[in-house]
Write a protein that binds this DNA or RNA. Sequence first.
RNA 1: GGAGAGAUGGCCGAGUAGGUCGAAGGCGCUCGCCUGCUAAGCGAGUAUACUGGGAAACCGGUAUCCAGGGUUCGAAUCCCUGUCUCUCCGCCA
Length: 423
Amino acid sequence: MLDMKYIRENFEETDRRLRTRGGESYLAGFCELDEKRRALLIECETLKALRNSVSDEIGRTKDKSLVQDKILEMREVSHKIKGLDEELNQVDDQLHSFMLTVPNLPHITTPVGTSENDNVLVRSWGEPQKLPFEAKAHWDLGEDLGILDFERGAKITGARFTLYRGAGARLERALINLMLDLHTDQHGYQEVLPPFMVNRDSMTGTGQLPKFEEDLFKLVDPEFFLIPTAEVPVTNIHRNEILKKSDLPISYCAYTPCFRREAGSYGKDTRGLIRQHQFNKVELVKFVHPSESDAALETLTGHAEKVLQLLELPYRVMALCSGDIGFSAAKTYDIEVWLPGQSCYREISSCSTFGDFQARRASIRFREDEKGKPEFVHTLNGSGLAVGRTLVAILENYQQEDGSVLVPTVLQPYMGGLELVKS
RNA sequence: GGAGAGAUGGCCGAGUAGGUCGAAGGCGCUCGCCUGCUAAGCGAGUAUACUGGGAAACCGGUAUCCAGGGUUCGAAUCCCUGUCUCUCCGCCA
């Protein structure tokens, strides 16, 4: 959520920066609603002040017969207050709902642009290798090796669900462990294992709700949502808390499955593991002092990159443009891994800073000093990495001409010493 | 699933025949004093949000004693609903 006071005082600038997300004005009607609310508030609170002082006087008067007229008068006032309160609540709700649908302001360093074509290459690592034979896509490799069973996944549940078997299942688990070990042992994150279902408040806190409910899997009774990313439960760990300055920065990493409806992506990536309704991810989440967030995005992105470097998978880092960043994000780096089977780079991690946008929604604050006013922290997160897509990258990059797949050296200890996956 | 108990400020914990309660007391914390050091002691302060005025320091108003509704001139206190927590029984990994 954006700071309403800031919008009020910097309307033109805010509106202009928001428009870089894609044309439309996100603030139409804000000023009217805001002014209406404050006018009602003043009227209502003035009456309440009157009622409070007169009621106080009534309370102090022992002989109630002396204040009968005041009681009657206050009965009127209370009636009026009730009406105003209702009206005020309505306007408040309207304004609040409105604010929840306004996206974050793009960071000043976020490139302005309208689509992914305007994303900016930041750096690349490793050489996209040319295999000396015709590269297979991972879905063929996986099926031929008997480690990915798409048909049975579909039978058990439906499209975009996959059954992993044998070395495939173990490879997924090995990757999860490698990532968690790296981030906890080398990068200073605390591992957490959060609930995989969350309530509406948590989803609202990080920005998935109210605008993107159709992207989520939902349980009806009780109303819970399956998490689309560990970002949601982990960021909400500190919802409605005031942290100590000395607590910051807080760094968590978490393995969770992620559940996404993928509504609107019919026909896209229908083969293989790229776009699943359920996939595994190791997520990095940081809560930092506002002055640290820009630097923290760089280091967090570096932590995600490190996984690919250890696995020796070529990748590039893209700065997303204003038209391509997510609703809650101020700035995002996508890490894209090279997939020889499809001769393209595919997103394997998305690292974002949210500034105080999520912190304001979820009320996550800290004090600069003991007596200071609470201020909002800045939140960041990034995939470190999407596990299924990492497995895809390994299959495609480490494939041999005979269809077997080498196990990256760093993963071998996690695979019981296995060096080659073959059928 | 059955039975019962509870939810008050950073924490503990008073407060239920409605008014002087934003809320006693204690702990913790901050500042000052005092004190060979430490400890103890003394004094002051110590919630949040919104909002009005002000350049600011600051001053004022409103709301908040789990949440939402109701009764009343007036609710932490009374009534209704919901949520959560705890204990016991049953069931279960």
